[in-house]
Design a protein around this nucleic acid. Structure first.
Lengths: 234, 234
DNA sequence: GCAAAAGTGTTGTGTATACACCCATGG
DNA sequence: CCATGGGTGTATACACAACACTTTTGC
């Protein structure tokens, strides 16, 4: 145990390192942005999560958003802070605080947005060699995403604005890594009341065209699945 | 929007400020530790959350734990990071990162542990005048605590080692701010399988003595209530 | 007419809620 | 014997999982 009131070590505090797990979906694959590392950046890895430093006078989330925008060329639809860890690189005499974020980026009707040079979409199931911290952060992002799928409509941010029921189900199956029953899925989704069927259709093959849906307002933040510990007395 | 690749402002990064929401329970009240501020600390408030700075070479959670231990005199039973925010105090030319934590401290059989000078237990419903950030952090801690009550056994950390069913229910009712049905509560708690009835009893009045329970192992981290989106195919 | 995906209903089973009375004790 | 909180069972409603066939289209 370190003494609680030990002096705060180096006069200069730790370096702050924001890292962003930027995710999108392509068919049944989740993709994450991997950025090339500068050869002189001191890292032992050729690629890793997009990073950046916070800016005096700028909120952290805006900086995280800017990092996502800079490396992908587009604005994310959803941003959430994940966790802050300290990274003790005593061997290199440095000390870092890593603040990790998750950013979700909607695919466009014509597919996944192309990335500027220096960054690529990589399936989360097929990551290159990256730092332990980066991997840990990505794992955590996936756990969080999976959990939130159960009680929020976070999946909407991995869809185009209008979508078929099948595409919606694909999002869930991809993230959960598990097949779901078509009929139960449809019923449950419609029961949430946050979907509206549009009058459009999608025809993409020699079969019956699919109805298109969109999510209602942005304002369903919060619960939409059954809360626990309810009580009629309330 | 700030330019994503603006230079990282002052050569010295932000000051890092850990704050701990240390909670315990006394009967049907949730109490939080309020620390006195040094008169020369520059804050406009007489009291606030216990704070500290991280330490080179020490993990953040250990430092947070040390802060809790220093201000309360005892070790917390549960510690969880809440959120990191940047606080732009441009007016004072300073820049801070606040990393907020929640610490739960078990009451002892003889009541709430006494605190060393400079700190007091204050009911969360009756907070003194504190900074906006401190209040925000406390609110967030309570939201998180309430949410976790639904799918973890986090409530155990606000109980003595053995406890009556009524005390357990008190924890839930206190945190949820809602009365619960005694029979349904008991059934549901026992159904989780993480409680064991001890052979002790508590007599404290002219009525039937209450059976005592304890939580099984520490190892129930994770789900103990029904997960959603299950599928027999898995 | 056939291949391919969209769409649709019912039934069983389990889980949450609502609710009222008897039990053991101290004074 | 009575006041006080501890302890128990049941009926109902709802939500979830399982499951198979019909519809619409393009070719």
């Amino acid at each position: 145990m370190t003494a609680p009131d030990a002096p705060p070590a180096p006069a200069t505090g730790p370096e702050i390192d924001l890292r962003v797990v930027a995710l999108t979906r392509d068919g049944d694959r989740l993709l994450v942005v991997m950025a090339d590392r500068e050869p002189d950046s001191g890292t032992a890895f050729a690629r890793g999560l997009p990073r950046g430093r916070p800016d005096f006078g700028t909120e952290l989330d805006r900086t995280a958003s800017a990092i996502a925008r800079r490396t992908t060329g587009i604005a994310e639809q959803y941003l959430e802070q994940l966790y802050t860890i300290s990274v003790d690189q005593s061997s290199r005499g440095s000390w870092k605080l890593v603040v990790a974020w998750m950013a979700l980026i909607s695919p466009r009707p014509d597919g996944v947005p192309a990335l500027p040079p220096g960054a690529d979409w990589v399936p989360v199931t097929d990551l290159p060699t990256i730092s332990r911290i980066d991997r840990q952060v990505i794992d955590y992002a996936l756990v969080r995403l999976r959990a939130k799928l159960g009680y929020t409509s976070i999946g909407r941010y991995l869809l185009t604005e209008s979508f078929t029921m099948r595409e919606l189900q694909d999002v869930y199956e991809t993230i959960l890594g598990q097949p779901l029953d078509k009929r139960n899925f449809r019923r449950r989704m419609l029961a949430t009341g946050i979907l509206t069927q549009t009058d459009g259709q999608r025809r993409d093959g020699s079969h019956r065209p699919a109805a298109l849906y969109r999510f209602d307002s942005e304002e369903d933040q919060g619960r939409y699945l059954t809360p626990t510990w309810s009580n009629s007395q309330s």
